[in-house]
């Protein structure tokens, strides 16, 4: 994936906190993040993450899905704790796991996106800026999951939470096919901003929907 920043925000800066229990990965990630990103701190457990985020208040938290500590809730628990004390930080989930349940747990807790740990330096930098500006970051895999959970035929009337609109379906399909936001916009003859709006809408649906597939699927895995 190559998610370019929304507008050529070359001089926009974003501050991050890296939360991951592997020291090697943290230092590797710190090295690959672009010059426009300031790393304010690192944490390796749920408790550490909460206190570091509380102390530094970063724009974006790069959050591993699996974390030791807390009540065993991993990344999702960090988000819930930070929401509880009113942090304004946004969360971007990072994972090596290809198990959709891990990803959906953090997304439903409130993460603004999800990327794999094999992501390249420029891509993660772009994703951080995107999340910092309030947009959602969808990997092809997450888009694939959304299509699977919401169905590829269902089309929403109005603002239904349980279905995707025709446009949202198209956007999700293109992202699942490996298109960037820019390529998606070009393909559909819409602006990138519109693509971002659609993706954010889908993210909201993913977080709020009580669609029975999602609910059943999540409760089967004891996520609810």
């Amino acid at each position: 994936m190559t998610h370019e920043p929304t507008d050529p925000a070359g001089d926009a800066r974003a501050s991050v906190v890296i939360v991951d229990d592997h020291g090697i990965f943290r230092s590797g990630l710190r090295a690959t993040l672009g010059a426009t990103i300031d790393v304010l701190g690192e944490a390796s457990t749920v408790e550490e993450a909460e206190s570091v985020i509380r102390a530094t208040g970063p724009d974006v938290v790069l959050l591993d899905v699996h974390l030791p500590g807390g009540r065993g809730g991993g990344g999702a628990e960090v988000i819930l704790r930070c929401v509880a004390f009113g942090a304004r930080s946004r969360f971007l989930a990072l994972s090596v796991s290809d198990a959709a349940e891990d990803v959906v747990a953090v997304i439903r807790a409130g993460a603004r996106g999800y990327v794999t740990k094999t992501i390249s330096g420029p891509d993660i930098t772009a994703a951080v800026h995107r999340v910092a500006s309030g947009d959602a970051v969808f990997s092809p895999r997450l888009a694939g999951f959304v299509l699977d959970a919401f169905g590829t035929a269902a089309v929403a009337v109005d603002d239904e939470l349980d279905r995707l609109s025709a446009r949202e379906l198209e956007v999700m399909r293109l992202i699942a096919r490996g298109y960037t936001y820019r390529e998606t916009a070009k393909e559909l003859f819409i602006s990138i901003k519109t693509v971002e709006t659609h993706v954010s809408a889908v993210l909201r649906k993913l977080q709020l929907s009580s669609r029975h597939e999602l609910t059943r699927w999540a409760s089967e895995r004891r996520l609810l």
């Binding site: 959709a100 699977d148 699927w217």
Partner: peptide
Amino acid sequence: RSAGSGKDAG
């Protein structure tokens, strides 16, 4: 088949 097969081998 709906949910559950959206996993990725990549």
